[in-house]
Design a protein around this nucleic acid. Sequence first.
DNA 1: TTGTATGCAAAGCGTTTGCAGTGAT
DNA 2: ATCACTGCAAACGCTTTGCATACAA
Lengths: 143, 143
Amino acid sequence: MERNTRQRAAIRDAIAQAERPLLPQEVLDAAQQQVPGLGIATVYRNLKALVADGELNPVMLPGENPRFELAGHQHHHHFQCLQCQRVFDVHACPGDLSRLAPPGFSVEAHDLTLYGRCKDCAPPASRRRAPKAAPHKHAHTHD
Amino acid sequence: MERNTRQRAAIRDAIAQAERPLLPQEVLDAAQQQVPGLGIATVYRNLKALVADGELNPVMLPGENPRFELAGHQHHHHFQCLQCQRVFDVHACPGDLSRLAPPGFSVEAHDLTLYGRCKDCAPPASRRRAPKAAPHKHAHTHD
DNA sequence: TTGTATGCAAAGCGTTTGCAGTGAT
DNA sequence: ATCACTGCAAACGCTTTGCATACAA
């Protein structure tokens, strides 16, 4: 990371202003409002550089493509809405889980993902209002 | 799922005899010992059919390609070895995690992955013996 | 015989990379 | 003026699909 380009600033801003982890394509869409000619390759290159630089953290969820959020958050987990597919931070943690591993296995880290309805999407019982974003394409669904 | 082919039997057997979730390529490698001409497309088609049929379950881990294991196991989680990258079942669960979600979010399901050293790979402190399998290509690390 | 399943190759999708031109310093 | 950065397009790895053939029933 050496030079400050309009592209990098737009990418950084897009992620900084999102209140949730973004997919590369979402970063592109947001950053293009600031830099119309921006290419997807530049987004990928900058995401990689910003992660290497410690400015961003990749967010990997099961069966999902990587998303990106600002680094600096402490240990946390994620919540994915089963309706709008968006991902949100969960600033809580079940704590030590080493007791769950089979004998002979050592636990050094863990990933946890919660699934359900976000506050914008109707909970199964008492629905409220429509989601703000359409579902993303992504791939793979969960059970 | 209609006909019983040698290919499907070989694929089913490969997964049944593995004591852990397998990647499509691992399924191919194992099944080809029984049906040499087997193609990867046939593996993918059968994996999809067997999952639709309820015989197999896909195992999705963060940043990993889907693996497959026999269905029928009850709710469980997975452990991935940081050294050999192989995935193992964890027949334990932290239980209800709905308390972790932010207000307004409903939790319907969760995924948990533990990371560390499997019993074949040396634990950080008291190592024992070398791993039985070489690491797979992609790696991605976690927090 | 009939039509599903297979093998091969081409196509898709998300991501990465080569390359020549652009622009920050 | 340099040289990192960018945009475009080709290349990649994994997965899916089209199509003609093979084989289970």
